[in-house]
C-alpha cells in the first residue's frame, strides 16, 4: 500500500459533515479531522488529476468543518458532543495554517493558546512542599516551578508533554519576526516545561519523569512529539539524549504510531529515516493495518518523503 492508497482510505472514511471520526463510523472530532486534513494536504497540492481534485475537495470540507467548530473564544472543542475548548486547538491551527480561508481562525486560535495556562499546585502547597525535608516531598522541583508552564489536555489542569508539543508547534508555525514578546515568552515557558520534563534515561513519557521519587520510563510517541516541539533549538543535551532514547525504544516498539512519529521527528534533525520508512511501507500492506484515523494520517505523512508537516524555523 502506497501513500496514495492510505490517503484514499482516509478520504473514504470522511463523515458526511466533512469531518473525520477517531475511527471510521464514529462522529467527527477535531483531532481526527485536523490530522486527516494534514494527511490529505500533500497530495492535494501535488497532483492535478481528477483523483487529486477529490482529495482536495475532501480536505477543503475538513477545513470548513474545522472553521465552523471554532469557539467564540478561539479554541477548538473535542467534538460537537464535547464542546469545551482544549488541547485539540494546537492541532486545528496546524491544519489551517497557510490556508487563505483559515487566516482569521488561526489568528483567534493563536490568541487562545497564548491565554491558556496549565494549573499547578496552589501557593499553599508550594510553600508546604518547600518547607518539608527533601525526602518527604511528594512533588518535584520541576512541578513546583511556576516558570515551567506547558499546556494541559483540559483547561484548568496540569500540563503534559503532548498537548504542550501541539501548542508549541502551532505557535512556532505562526510566529514571525514581528510576533509580540508575549508570544516569545509563552513559547520559552512551554519549551522549559519540556526541557525539564525529560526522563533520567533520556526521552519523554506523558509528562511525569518521576513519581514519589521513583523514575518512570519514556515512550516513543511522546519523545517524538517533544523532539518535534524543540526542533528549532538545535542539538542540545536534552534533544541528543532524546534521540538516543527514541532509537533505543524503537528496538522494542515497532508499532505504526511509534514508527511514523519517529520518522516525522527524526527527519527534522536531518537523520536518516529511510529504514524506518521502508518498514512502514511494508507494514501498511499487512492485514491488521490500524483503522485509527490518527495513526493512518501519521503513516501517510511519514511515507510522503518530500513532506515535513511539523517543520518550523526560528521565525515560524
Amino acid at each position: 500500500m502506497m501513500t496514495e492508497e492510505i490517503t484514499t482510505q482516509i478520504e473514504s472514511t470522511q463523515n458526511p459533515d466533512g469531518g473525520w471520526g477517531s475511527r471510521p463510523d464514529l462522529p467527527s472530532t477535531t483531532e481526527a479531522t485536523a490530522l486527516a486534513v494534514l494527511a490529505l494536504d500533500p497530495l492535494a497540492g501535488q497532483d492535478p488529476s481528477t483523483a487529486s481534485g477529490e482529495v482536495r475537495g475532501a480536505a477543503d470540507s475538513g477545513v470548513r468543518w474545522l472553521i465552523a467548530r471554532q469557539k467564540q473564544d478561539g479554541g477548538w472543542p473535542v467534538s460537537d458532543e464535547v464542546p469545551e475548548p482544549g488541547w485539540m486547538t494546537g492541532l486545528a491551527l496546524l491544519a489551517l495554517k497557510g490556508r487563505a480561508s483559515g487566516v482569521e481562525a488561526v489568528s483567534k486560535g493563536s490568541r487562545w493558546l497564548l491565554r491558556e495556562e496549565s494549573r499547578g499546585p496552589s501557593w499553599r502547597v508550594r510553600i508546604v512542599q518547600r518547607l518539608l525535608p527533601q525526602e518527604r516531598r511528594t512533588l518535584t522541583a520541576r512541578e513546583l516551578d511556576p516558570d515551567l508552564s506547558g499546556w494541559p489536555w483540559v483547561s484548568g489542569s496540569f500540563h503534559w508533554i503532548e498537548p504542550t508539543a501541539y501548542a508549541l508547534l502551532a505557535l512556532k508555525s505562526v510566529r514571525d519576526a514581528g510576533s509580540p514578546g508575549r508570544m516569545q515568552e509563552r513559547i520559552r515557558k512551554g519549551e522549559g516545561m519540556i526541557l525539564h520534563g525529560s526522563c533520567t534515561q533520556g526521552g519523554w513519557n506523558h509528562g511525569a519523569p518521576e513519581v514519589l521519587g521513583k523514575e518512570l520510563w519514556p515512550y516513543p510517541d511522546t519523545t517524538a512529539w517533544a523532539l518535534m516541539a524543540l526542533q528549532d533549538l538545535g542539538r542540545r543535551e536534552e534533544t541528543i539524549r532524546g534521540i538516543a532514547a527514541l532509537e533505543r525504544m524503537l528496538e522494542e516498539n515497532r508499532s505504526m504510531l511509534s514508527l511514523s512519529l519517529s520518522v516525522l521527528s527524526l527527519q527534522l534533525y536531518d537523520l536518516d529515516v529511510s529504514q524506518l520508512r521502508a518498514e512502514l511501507a511494508v507494514r501498511v500492506g499487512e492485514e491488521d493495518f490500524p483503522d485509527e484515523t490518527r495513526v493512518r494520517a501519521f503513516v501517510s505523512l511519514a511515507l510522503a518523503e518530500s513532506v515535513r508537516p511539523f517543520q518550523v524555523t526560528r521565525n515560524g
Binding site: T29, E31, S79, V82, W87, F158, W160, E162
Partner: peptide
Amino acid sequence: TVYGWPKN
C-alpha cells in the same frame, strides 16, 4: 480525548 493522558 476528553480527559487526557493521564486523566488529570
